[in-house]
Simulated scan of single mutants.
Amino acid sequence: MEILFDQALVAARRERAFRNAEPGASFLLDLVAHELAERLAVVERRFETAVELHGGTGIAARLANETGRIASIERVETSSVFAASGEPLTVAALDDLPLEPASASLVLSPLSLHLVNDTPGMLVRIRRALKPDGLFMAAIPGAGTLAELRDVLLATEIERTGGASPRVIPFADVRDVGALLQRAGFTLPVVDVENYTVRYDSIFPLMRDIRAMGMANPLVGRSRQPVSRGFFIRAAELYAERYADPDGRIRATFSIIYVSGWAPHESQQKPLKPGSAKMRLADALRVPRDEEPGSAS
């Protein structure tokens, strides 16, 4: 397994961001928490034991609870500092899943799976932690997220030094996420993408928001060389040249992959085996035999 993320650094930055919460900095987490709650609300089921995995502020757990679809919810976080007063909370690293097999009927993961070093393994462990016919729902930043920032930082570094180092973390493609769900053993998987565009006056408030989210570069292979203010001034110029609207404000894309999948259960619908159809396609479509595709004229 390749170690991409410095988990101690990820945890420290998330905890610092939570302690020093800036107004509006959690906008992305708030947005996906509302979206997950809306999707949960239309599921005609009641889930007795729900778990929120590394949801930061806990808003995903709170909104899920308000849907009336769950009896109780437990939160898992990297530190007890994330707990509200008197709230029970299980402490575990992002790469850890402290759940017994078949112990949860619902698992929610809002904006944390992209920071796990072994995503395929984590998905397998989540599926095993679900009771039969249990539901997994997640929001995962996907390919396209911060594409503009990645482009201008790369261009600036090449221009100034002739080389490049990773400054924006890699994000998964939606097709890869769907394939991982199937490989992990989830049934009835659903994967879709929502793109959100946020506008800023310049690159500097965008980068402040990223730090305030606890999302500054945690890659093990990140450059340790100090970066001058001149570097970011040039990056801001390139950002404005390439991604500014007519009013001068720049665009930043957040591409969120929404995921759901079920733990297998005998009651679930299963696809028919090839050749098991009881009716001809032409009969189903009520197409006269002499008008079937490929018939002689």
Rank of each mutant, 00 (worst) to 15 (best):
E2G: 13
E2Q: 15
F5C: 09
V10N: 13
R16D: 09
A17T: 10
N20R: 15
E22D: 01
G24Q: 00
D30G: 06
D30K: 11
V32H: 03
H34Y: 09
H34I: 14
L40D: 01
R45F: 01
R46C: 09
G55R: 08
G58P: 04
A60Q: 06
G68M: 05
G68R: 01
A71T: 11
A71D: 12
R75I: 00
S80E: 11
F82K: 04
F82A: 04
F82G: 06
A83K: 00
A84V: 00
S85R: 14
G86F: 06
E87A: 11
T90A: 03
T90N: 08
A93R: 15
L97G: 03
S105I: 07
S105F: 00
V116A: 14
T119E: 12
G121Y: 03
R127E: 14
A129V: 13
L135H: 02
F136D: 04
P141W: 02
G144P: 07
T145G: 04
T145R: 11
A147P: 08
L149I: 15
I158Q: 15
G163S: 13
R167L: 04
I169W: 14
F171I: 02
A172T: 14
A172H: 11
D173L: 11
L181I: 02
Q182V: 10
G185L: 09
F186E: 00
T187F: 04
T187V: 13
P189Y: 00
Y196P: 11
V198M: 10
V198A: 05
A212W: 05
M213N: 02
M213G: 02
M215S: 13
P218V: 03
V220M: 14
G221K: 13
S223I: 00
S223L: 03
A235W: 11
A235M: 10
E241K: 15
R242E: 11
R249H: 11
A252F: 06
S255G: 12
I256K: 03
I257G: 05
G261R: 03
P264R: 10
E266L: 14
E266M: 12
S267K: 15
P271M: 06
L272T: 09
L272V: 10
A277W: 03
M279C: 08
L281W: 09
A282R: 15
P288H: 00
E292G: 01
P293Y: 01
G294F: 05
